[in-house]
Design a protein around this nucleic acid. Structure first.
Lengths: 182, 182, 182, 182
DNA sequence: AATGAATGAGACTTCATTCAT
DNA sequence: TATGAATGAAGTCTCATTCAT
């Protein structure tokens, strides 16, 4: 009657994966818990064995997303060309895991959700701005912090437009952006 | 049982105003029709005399917002310094009518809503990119269209961060951005 | 500011006509008062100047219908062939004023409505059965009353099937029925 | 907060039974979903676990009714006296399960409902006419199909009048009808 | 670890009716 | 005679969550 060992814990991951997909596609509000469990092929009750609430599930998923996004910023601190590399990896990561970014951006403008995840979001922003600031300082920019804030806005805006517009010329714009910081 | 005489006929505008405020503060989904009508001081049914549905109300409000945003871009086509003026007016408008921008940005990442307003949004984007492109061409940029797309991403990203972060140094960042486009 | 004389009372008739059409097409419940007044080209309030309620309107219309149906039974009491004539006129009337019959049959099975119009309906039934009974008596049927009740069921059933089925062979069935009562 | 154990699993049937009773008594439109669930002793939401909509519930009930009505026509195809037997069983079934017939007749004249159930209704009509036609052919009637259509109208008319009039002399009329087809 | 029947608050929407003008 | 803005009860349906098994 027990699940085979290798199946243990699969349900939890299936829930998380399915929910990430659905949340990013349809939005948090428009995705019902029942829909998630059906798509994940598990029962409604089981979901509540793993997560206290729909919001708790969102939080758990969000952690993963944050991690994934943060990873795309993890660059060995070599010297020149580091910004170019970072930006390329960043926009590369967006293309490959659109779901994570879609979730993040979808949540950000919804007050009640962003409050729920305020800390994680803030940490991420600070980390990104910090990293950028460091690089820009090495590149001898005068006000590296402000420059980082501005650059962050730019790459975030690009991300948003890319996620919103299926015909967005991401490559060309990435290239153009990089060219401005050599 | 009816409204006092002096209130007659203002109801439609009261609904629109109230709904814009609530939608931008709490989001479309989290704002119930009952809440709107209560805040507007009218009955529930009256809203449906003016608008066919909650979505129709959103659409009506959205038109106004689009118009407002577009107005902040209307600059007489003089020569130099036009971009600086435009950016200043743009970010000025954001500060003054945060509600319109909040509504726009809050809707953008929610597929079912952005689809509903797809045409208006696209028209606005094209208009903005077109205007920017024109100015950048006058400024002798090589690929004015790409430059415009990039600049639009930047100002949109700044807007988003400003709306999300109450301590955002909008003035400084605006200044820095402008300095890059002398 | 007064209506021209010939226009007086037109509104009332327009309401009745429009309501009959809509009630018979869509049913009483599925037709809203607003819909009626819009289709009739008058204001909502005016309808309530003429009729106390939606049900009162139905009642007024129903009188007309009953009258119309009754008229199709008014035959000068000549001798033989009277039944054939009556049936032909009856089914002829159905074809020409389907709306009246549709209203009657649509209401009959809805308890709360048929109660409202119980008296009129009963009077009509009795009248029809009475007339039929008389004719059948002249035709030397043994139990003219029962025969009338049965014949009424038959013509009512035919009517119902005809109103329900656009391909109903009304002529052929009428002919067959008449042939049974030569 | 949940139903007592012994009640579990009966809910679906309880809903169907209660709804059939209420629909046939009060009509589909005049019966609210809340009323059904209250009378069935279950919660409002549970109904929507079993049926997608009020109309879907009607459809499910209708299937049962159709079956019941059809069963009253299932006669072993012996020879003479078959029609008499069939008619007696038919009118017998009506007396015993008035609810099913009331539902059928109540729906028939309401366009939007009869459309919903068009296929089932048509199938039933064709079946009845087919059976009658067969019997009448054996009885050497000249145009068995037309005769069947006419007879169907008659028994349907009787049914309708019986359902509408609590003092209807069903037995006598049945007897008279049968006497015409020996 | 897993199920899914059951709950009930609350969402959007419709509609007959009233009344000041 | 005529208007239509305004009302609010009532309708259908959704959904996160609980709990006995």
């Amino acid at each position: 009657m027990n699940q085979p060992v290798e199946a243990r814990g699969n349900s939890r991951q299936k829930i998380v994966d399915t929910a990430l997909k659905l949340f990013s596609q349809q939005g948090f509000e428009k995705t019902s818990v029942r829909e998630i469990t059906k798509a994940a092929g598990i029962s409604l009750g089981l979901m509540y064995n793993y997560f206290d609430s729909k919001e708790a599930l969102l939080k758990a998923i969000f952690q993963e997303s944050i991690q994934n996004i943060q990873d795309s910023f993890a660059i060995e601190p070599n010297d020149t060309g580091r910004l170019a590399l970072l930006l390329r990896r960043y926009f590369d990561a967006i293309e490959k895991r659109q779901d994570h970014w879609r979730l993040l951006h979808g949540i950000r403008m919804q007050q009640h959700l962003s409050q729920l995840l305020a800390q994680e979001t803030e940490t991420l922003s600070n980390y990104i701005i910090g990293e950028l600031s460091l690089i820009l300082k090495n590149l001898r920019y005068e006000r590296p912090l402000h420059e980082a804030v501005l650059l962050f806005a730019t790459i975030d805006g690009i991300t948003n437009h890319y996620l919103t517009n299926s015909r967005y010329p991401l490559d060309k714009i990435t290239h153009l952006l990089i060219s401005k910081y050599i």
